[in-house]
């Protein structure tokens, strides 16, 4: 039981972490709450489903292609729908929820409301220190970690990463550094959609793929980001793992716990907001008074 919670918690936490990082990144840089974020994850998973099962492509190229397509889609959606309204938070919310529902409806028309599985990319299982995990789970955990390290390196080591952080901190001054703020937002949205697709690719073979799969992760991602402190990437990763483990523990330990999964994230979010509104890592830099 403990092993099962550990393995599943890591898989789930890793997936939530990738999703939450992408969401937090867009919030930090473009200052928008992108409610369509987990819809990218869903569409990414569907693209992989289409390519591997329906078209019979090998899995790795399908994943790469799906990631590329979604990266571009994310950027285009931002440029077309969100960039021009990004100073109006309510409009952003409505439009991004609209985009998510658009994806959902298109997929419902195309595929119906069925739950579909994708075959594991690698079969079999491995035993590490007496804990049994399928290869697919090991791959999922490893991929999450690699993705998180990669995004960290991208942000801290590269020229564009540095510019993205600059925009996140002070948009106005970033302008004076010669940084095209709007372009950085487009790039960030692309990165965020890429991360969402990685999450989709990682878990598609473990969980089911269906046109409503974006809703549950969205509440969890919102909760993780609130838990960690809005805008803090480190915090949202921690928040995601906490929620991943909490959810897994509830599923395994509480009778009929599987029905309570969704409640866990929201309860955590409410409690955190009540006790520590700035979240675990949320720092409020006091602004200088003039």
């Amino acid at each position: 039981m403990v092993e099962a919670i550990l393995i599943n918690g890591l898989v789930l936490g890793g997936m939530y972490a990738i999703l939450a990082v992408g969401f937090a990144l867009v919030f930090g840089v473009a200052k928008i709450l992108n409610m369509a974020h987990t819809a990218f994850y869903m569409v990414g998973a569907f693209l992989i489903l289409i390519m591997t099962i329906m078209l019979g492509f090998p899995s790795l190229p399908s994943i790469v292609l799906a990631i590329a397509i979604m990266g571009i889609t994310g950027s285009v959606i931002y440029k077309l729908f969100l960039d021009r309204v990004k100073e109006h938070p309510v409009a952003v919310m409505i439009i991004s929820v609209g985009v998510a529902i658009l994806f959902q409806e298109v997929l419902l028309i195309g595929f119906g409301g069925h739950f579909r599985g994708i075959d594991p990319f690698v079969r079999g299982f491995v035993e590490i220190a007496g804990i049994r995990a399928t290869y697919q789970q090991v791959i999922a955990i490893a991929t999450s970690l690699v993705a998180l390290v990669a995004i960290r390196l991208l942000l801290s080591k590269t020229r564009v990463g540095n510019a993205i952080r600059a925009v996140a901190e002070d948009r106005e001054i970033a302008n004076v550094m010669g940084i095209d703020v709007s372009r950085m937002c487009v790039i960030t949205m692309g990165i965020s959609a890429v991360l969402a697709t990685v999450a989709g690719a990682v878990v598609a073979p473990i969980f089911m793929v269906h046109p409503l799969m974006w809703m549950h992760p969205l509440t969890i991602v919102l909760a993780a980001v609130v838990l960690g402190g809005l805008g803090s990437i480190k915090g949202s990763i921690l928040g995601a793992f906490i929620l991943g483990f909490a959810e897994t523990a509830v599923v395994f330990l509480v009778p009929m716990g599987a029905f309570l999964r969704g409640a866990v994230g929201l309860s955590v979010m409410v409690v955190v907001l009540l006790l520590r509104p700035e979240g675990l890592f949320g720092v409020v830099f006091e602004e200088e008074r003039l």
């Binding site: 510019a163 901190e169 830099f285």
Partner: peptide, 24 residues
């Protein structure tokens, strides 16, 4: 422009601030 009150990117290191200046 070197703005009023400097306004460095406060959560970034000194070196990263300078690198941001060299963006172009």
């Amino acid at each position: 422009l070197c703005p009023e009150r400097g306004r460095p990117f406060r959560e970034m290191t000194v070196l990263d601030n300078l690198r941001a200046g060299a963006f172009g």
